[in-house]
Nucleic acid binder design. Sequence first.
DNA 1: CTACGGAGCTGAGAAAATCA
DNA 2: TGATTTTCTCAGCTCCGTAG
Length: 251
Amino acid sequence: MLYNTFQHIPGIGKKTEEKIWKKQILTWDLFLSEHKKINISESKIKKICKYVELSKIEIEKKNHLFFLPLLSRSMHWRAYPEFADNCCFLDIETTGLSRDYHDITTIAVYDGKESKVFIQGKNLDEFRSEIKKYSLIVTYNGICFDIPFIEQKLPDIGFDHLHVDLRFALKKIGYSGGLKSIEKQLGIVREGDICDVDGYEAVRLWKRYKRGDKRALDKLMKYNIEDVVNLKTLMDITYKNLREKSFSCIQ
DNA sequence: CTACGGAGCTGAGAAAATCA
DNA sequence: TGATTTTCTCAGCTCCGTAG
């Protein structure tokens, strides 16, 4: 819902955006044609028009870097439909929680259709070029965990993506308590033989693989893929909810 | 085992609205 | 027009919770 968004304009906050929406001006184009209806100062109108024109051009170019410095993190979810074609769901498995003492084992990336797994000791390097394809990344707790972890282990990757962290987005719509718990609350079920796998089990699977158990790696990959595929389901639900919640001020 | 940025709150200061 | 009040944005501050 970037097309409905005005809060990325400097000096425009929640209040002004709601004021605009309440006049049934829900889109950039409607603002340009009908801004006379709104009771806000001339200087703000001018500024908004300028930024709306710019935003239209940049969104046409699919240039997420225009929006990155303007849009606060907590609103990156609004760019989900506009950047759906350049969006990926990301999750890593590691040998532990500490960036200093532990390593990445696998990274799963799902573009909404296909999933890929990058594996330590095999093709982890290919993740560098893969991630460059995307404008928007969706994770769970990735802001605190996955992204800083990857940045430390693969320091030459410069993350310049829009980023929806579902941990915080889901909290806004009333869900908290860990990814597995939220999946349960929403009735998302995991497949048979990996329904009992959690993060710590993923660490043990990697150790079994390193001791020569090839099937342990298959199971780990399967788990990692299921994680990212489920992220899309969660993102779809979250987006729909947050959008409705935003517009609930219009009555 | 561990760090990090989000949410939420507060107050400063700018901008805008109101009044004389 | 100039002075005062009100509204609004934003930066700074703690605290908390989640990841393998």
